[in-house]
Amino acid sequence: MEKDTHFILGVYDDEDVLLHAVEQVRGTGVKIHEVYSPYPVHGLEHVLGYKRSRLPIAAFLFGMLGTTLALTMQFYMMKFDWPMIIGGKNHAAFPDFIPVSFELTVLLASFGMVSVFMISSNLKPWAQPRIFDLRSTDDKHIMAIDIANNSAIEVDQIKEILRSSGATEVNNKSFE
């Protein structure tokens, strides 16, 4: 990052206080950079105004790809490339192809969706995340507010809003 970024952090102990706080802070017009939690807080994405994740669509598309590949492969191998008579059965024995098609559907849907999740959330072994507060993976919820994005509001005023919304601590954090 070429320029310094400065954040104000609101530290919350309780998930219910946090949910109300997010609504209050957004109500005053302050833009929240992101909220960091040690565990998934239900409804947080809703009060933050995030759009529903489209990962299920990715899973469906990858699943369809899996089914198509599996059926194409089996029909090609068993019916066209090297037809064999096995127990007098039809070469294109569709019921026999269902188990493998199902397994490959599940395999591609899972791996495809997880890959999309890894890419979209920037999860990789060499990733260097910006840690705002080490306690955000332990027991505190951290609301980060980017000062540059809220130039219309005074810094002290933002801090006051955070305190009145139930933050137990209000800190500054800068990244180079």
Partner: peptide, 17 residues
């Protein structure tokens, strides 16, 4: 940990996954 930071957006996707 693959650089996990616990962001609300990541948790939302995590729950969906």
């Amino acid at each position: 940990s693959f650089g996990w930071d616990g962001a609300a957006k990541s948790w939302m996707r995590y729950e969906s996954v």
